[in-house]
């Protein structure tokens, strides 16, 4: 267990292992995203109220779900960085922030596009959209704080603290915003209890959520590798890597 942790802290090992994971995960993700999109867009029945416009949930919902999960990934990386002083956790934190922000942004844009035919307006101040907007601010805060520090090691630690503070706050913010306004449909996907969404629509949605998780992982690994190369550019193992690839 500890030797695994120790290896995880070593940049060359992480670089190598992430490379071999990406070799099969990346093609698999692309195929899954494509398959899920085709399944959702072509092979599901239209909604009896919203017609075909609801199909945007196959992008909107997975993006929103993974955007929120991304914040927790970031916070866990932050906790590891603060507790075990592992530099690779800093790299993971730094790498996940822009991906999470991008997914949040996608969720907001697709939400707005979905809102136009459904409510007749691009923007409605409902609980979920507002929460997503706040999540975007939280992500942007992390990115801005990281960029503001010159000392990147301190930047990682400061962002870790902020991410943990954000993690404690997210449930409170979500509950407050929920309470503040509830115009949206009630939460309709539940893993326990009865589901109000038809299985023929639900399965492709769950499939797409899984595919988005894979996409997040791929982007995270790619980002981490780029960050590793830039941070460790003066070290020997990168020089050897460059020599090998020539």
């Amino acid at each position: 267990m500890w030797s695994f942790f120790h290896k995880l802290g070593s940049p060359p090992w992480l670089y190598r292992i992430s490379g071999s994971i990406l070799r099969w995960l990346l093609p698999l993700t692309i195929v899954a995203l494509f398959a899920g999109a085709v399944w959702g867009l072509l092979f599901t029945p239209p909604d009896f109220r919203q017609g075909n416009s609801y199909r945007i949930i196959y992008i909107h919902v997975p993006a929103a779900v993974v955007a929120l999960a991304g914040y927790y990934v970031m916070a866990i990386a932050g906790a590891i960085s603060l507790i075990w002083k592992m530099k690779m956790a800093d790299v993971a934190l730094r790498a996940s922030a822009p991906i999470g922000a991008a997914l949040t942004f996608i969720a907001l844009v697709t939400g707005a596009i979905w809102g136009k035919p459904t409510w007749g307006t691009w923007w409605v101040w409902d609980a979920r959209i507002t929460s997503m907007l706040i999540l975007l601010f939280l992500y942007l805060g992390i990115i801005a704080l990281y960029e503001a520090y010159d000392n990147k090691e301190a930047a990682g630690k400061a962002c870790a603290v902020l991410a943990l503070v954000g993690t404690v706050n997210i449930p409170i913010i979500y509950k407050s915003v929920d309470w503040w306004y509830s115009l949206h449909q009630p939460a309709s996907i539940k893993f326990t209890g009865e589901s109000t969404i038809d299985p023929s629509m639900l399965y492709p949605l769950l499939f797409m959520i899984t595919a988005f998780y894979a996409l997040f992982t791929c982007c995270l690994l790619l980002n981490m590798r780029a960050e590793l190369l830039s941070r460790e550019r003066r070290t020997g193992w990168i020089a050897r890597l460059v020599a090998e690839s020539r």
């Binding site: 706040i134 801005a144 704080l145 503001a148 520090y149 603290v161 706050n169 409170i172 915003v177």
Partner: peptide, 25 residues
């Protein structure tokens, strides 16, 4: 978190305002 930065003033609003919202509500 921002006291060591030269231009912390604007940054602090980005960091903290989202956290203020439950109190506002």
């Amino acid at each position: 978190l921002t006291v060591g930065l030269k231009r912390g003033g604007m940054l602090i609003s980005l960091l903290i305002l989202p956290l203020y919202l439950p109190v506002l509500i």
